[in-house]
């Protein structure tokens, strides 16, 4: 391809933005997993605020992240014209804020998971292994989504696909942690 003055321009494939974002996301996921596996688990409680134990705190913070993610999903559907009516101008910034807050409430949960418990192969079952893998992939997908939002070269389908994947991962994380906790320990604070 060449400009009118004859300058040659090398065309870039439209998906390169997504490729870079996915690569960075994969690196984040691997980093989280390697840390969880290599780090010697402290086996200590961390934050619990007014909750009975750190695990109660984690179960409710993950639930809060899920609620914020549902708000994210609804906001995204509205902005993409999948809900009735035109999305007002505040939906975009509100979508950004709810996404940031979802990440924020997940941080102390991830910190306890990684620092105190570590990547758990769970020899007695599969729940903790699946949860560990999902947790690593979640932060990788989050990094991919943030970079995809910022990328001008990512294809138009990339953002809803990565956002949907991120939402699905959080639902699975909630199912393998908070729901299990509420089911086995009880819905208590």
């Amino acid at each position: 391809m060449a400009l009118a003055d004859g300058t040659a321009v090398k065309a870039r494939p439209p998906g390169i933005g997504l490729g870079v974002a996915a690569g960075v996301g994969a690196a984040v996921a691997v980093f989280v997993g390697v840390y969880g596996k290599a780090h010697d688990p402290a086996s200590e409680t961390t934050i619990k605020w007014f909750f009975k134990t750190t695990l109660h705190f984690k179960a409710w913070m993950t639930t809060a992240a899920l609620i914020l993610a549902i708000a994210q999903l609804l906001g995204a559907l509205w902005m993409y014209g999948k809900l009735p009516g035109r999305a007002p101008s505040w939906v975009g910034p509100a979508h950004r804020i709810s996404g940031s807050l979802a990440l924020l409430v997940s941080l102390p949960v991830a910190y306890h998971c990684l620092w105190s418990l570590g990547f758990n192969p769970d020899p007695g079952g599969s729940r903790r292994l699946i949860h560990s893998i999902l947790g690593c992939v979640f932060y990788g997908a989050f990094a991919t989504k943030v970079l995809t939002v910022r990328s001008k070269r990512a294809p138009s389908w990339a953002l809803p696909v990565v956002g949907g994947l991120l939402f699905a991962l959080l639902v699975l994380i909630w199912l393998t942690s908070s729901l299990w906790f509420f089911d086995n320990i009880g819905v208590e604070v």
């Binding site: 950004r96 940031s100 807050l101 924020l104 941080l107 990684l114 620092w115």
Partner: peptide, 21 residues
């Protein structure tokens, strides 16, 4: 503006979390 402030604070929280780890 609020969204930008929140994003900046969350980015700082991510950095603090990684450092603590």
């Amino acid at each position: 503006r609020i969204a930008m402030i929140v994003e900046t604070l969350v980015l700082a929280a991510v950095i603090v979390t990684v450092v603590l780890m």
